[in-house]
């Protein structure tokens, strides 16, 4: 049973299409990466899991999160899902915690909303802060967000997400706004907590290396579509989509070999401005006329599922 099951998700606002036929699955205790450049639709996809869509969005497809049919759910059912079964950690902890309220209020708010008595919620808040490694939780709950460093604050956000004891954890670029050393600590914390509790995690990032290190499986998104899905190890060894390979070649490697860094020509496209057929073809070195005819179907190649007509030319 998957904790997140997104199938054939299409989303548009007015005449502007943003997501086309997105399929993402996360199993219990599994960590799944969602990788892409800005505008690829990865944040939209992760927010869809909680039924959070832009104003005026038209949505079709299927989204099931922690057993709740999100697109069919009413307000009450969605609120219940967000309170007790699925939680999100946002990119910038300074922006995602109300700056004028105390850290203790932040942690107890969700608990109180799901009916936990005030005293019990306060005790849980202390316990949660302790679990995420914040010293002197008793003092911390009385402080305001601006009195914490970014890394410490992200721990508070993670503590808040854990308060719900969720089956599904959505991490939307949880380390992008942090220092590199803090990044490692936060990732380690997320992994540890997820392992202890058997939570399924959707890890959204633009950093392919980070995704490969953290995740069991990775989805690569481009212009509102999933273009490749593969186990992390396979994705690195043998990328099947030209875009995935280009992403790998565009990021410096810390593994010692001094491969040349190659930038991807052109700029990222959104779904609305993508060319006909394969969205990546105007930036792809392998593209020819056949790529313009229709959007390539997803099919297996090696360990990957890939939306490309000639994956054998990417990695033989």
């Amino acid at each position: 049973m998957n904790v997140l099951d997104i199938a054939g998700l299409r989303l548009s606002v007015g005449d502007v299409p943003l997501l086309a036929d997105v399929t993402v699955r996360v199993g219990r205790a599994e960590t799944v990466g969602l990788v892409g450049e800005s505008g690829s639709g990865k944040s939209l996809t992760s927010r869809a899991a909680l039924g959070m869509f832009p104003r005026g969005a038209r949505v079709t497809g299927h989204v099931t999160a922690a057993g709740v049919d999100v697109l069919a759910a009413g307000r009450g059912a969605l609120r219940d899902l967000r309170r007790t079964r699925a939680a999100m950690v946002f990119q910038d902890p300074r922006a995602s915690i109300n700056p004028v309220r105390r850290v203790g209020d932040y942690l107890t708010e969700g608990l109180r909303a799901s009916g936990v008595p005030a005293r019990e919620a306060a005790a849980r808040a202390l316990d949660l802060l302790d679990q995420v490694g914040i010293r002197d939780p008793g003092r911390a709950v009385r402080r305001h967000p601006h009195e914490f460093s970014g890394g410490m604050l992200q721990r508070v956000v993670i503590a808040g997400a854990l308060a719900a004891e969720p089956d599904l954890l959505l991490a939307d670029e949880p380390t992008t706004a942090l220092d590199v050393t803090t990044q490692a600590e936060v990732v380690a914390l997320l992994k540890r907590l997820q392992r202890d509790r058997g939570t399924g995690m959707l890890f959204v990032t633009h950093d392919l290396d980070l995704a490969a290190a953290v995740c069991d499986r990775v989805y690569v998104m481009y212009a509102g579509r999933v273009v490749e899905e593969a186990p992390s190890a396979g994705l690195f060894r043998a990328p099947a989509h030209p875009y995935t390979r280009a992403l790998l070649e565009a990021s410096p490697s810390a593994r010692g070999e001094r491969a040349e860094i190659r930038a991807i020509r052109g700029r990222p496209r959104s779904l609305a401005e993508a060319p006909s057929g394969c969205s990546f073809r105007d930036r792809c070195p392998l593209a020819d006329d056949a790529c313009a005819r229709k959007v390539p179907d997803i099919r297996p190649h090696g360990t990957s599922l890939v939306a490309c007509l000639r994956p054998q030319e990417v990695t033989p």
């Binding site: 927010r47 909680l50 959070m52 969605l78 609120r79 219940d80 899902l81 967000r82 309170r83 007790t84 939680a87 999100m88 946002f90 910038d92 922006a95 995602s96 915690i97 109300n98 700056p99 708010e109 969700g110 909303a113 799901s114 808040g160 719900a164």
Partner: peptide, 12 residues
């Protein structure tokens, strides 16, 4: 974003 985040936590 903190308002979006509050909604994401199921606050009414």
């Amino acid at each position: 974003e903190h308002v979006v985040a509050a909604r994401s936590r199921g606050v009414g």
